[in-house]
């Protein structure tokens, strides 16, 4: 299991809406946001590749999202 801290940047003002759509995802836990264009989240995925794929998918599928930046990556052998 890979647990990562990520910063997600969105178009101005879109962060709350993105947060709402991300909040439904079971492996994303939102931990904060600036209310406008930045979100902080903890993401858990099976592997580093899955994490990258998730980030790429977000960038591709959700045009409100401008960037996904990992700030911390941890591996849980479980």
């Amino acid at each position: 299991m890979v647990i990562a801290g990520v910063l997600i940047t969105t178009k101005p003002g879109q962060a709350p809406f993105v947060a709402a759509s991300l909040g439904a995802s079971p492996h994303v836990q939102l931990v904060g946001g600036d209310g406008s264009e930045r979100l902080a989240a903890v993401v858990s995925r099976e592997s580093g590749e899955a994490l990258e794929a998730w980030a790429e998918e977000l960038l591709r599928d959700d045009e409100r999202i401008l960037g996904v930046y990992p700030t911390f990556v941890g591996h849980d052998p479980e």
């Binding site: 930046y69 990992p70 911390f72 990556v73």
Partner: peptide, 11 residues
Amino acid sequence: QDGELKPVVTE
């Protein structure tokens, strides 16, 4: 360094 060469801290 991640793909964009920004430092990422690991556990």
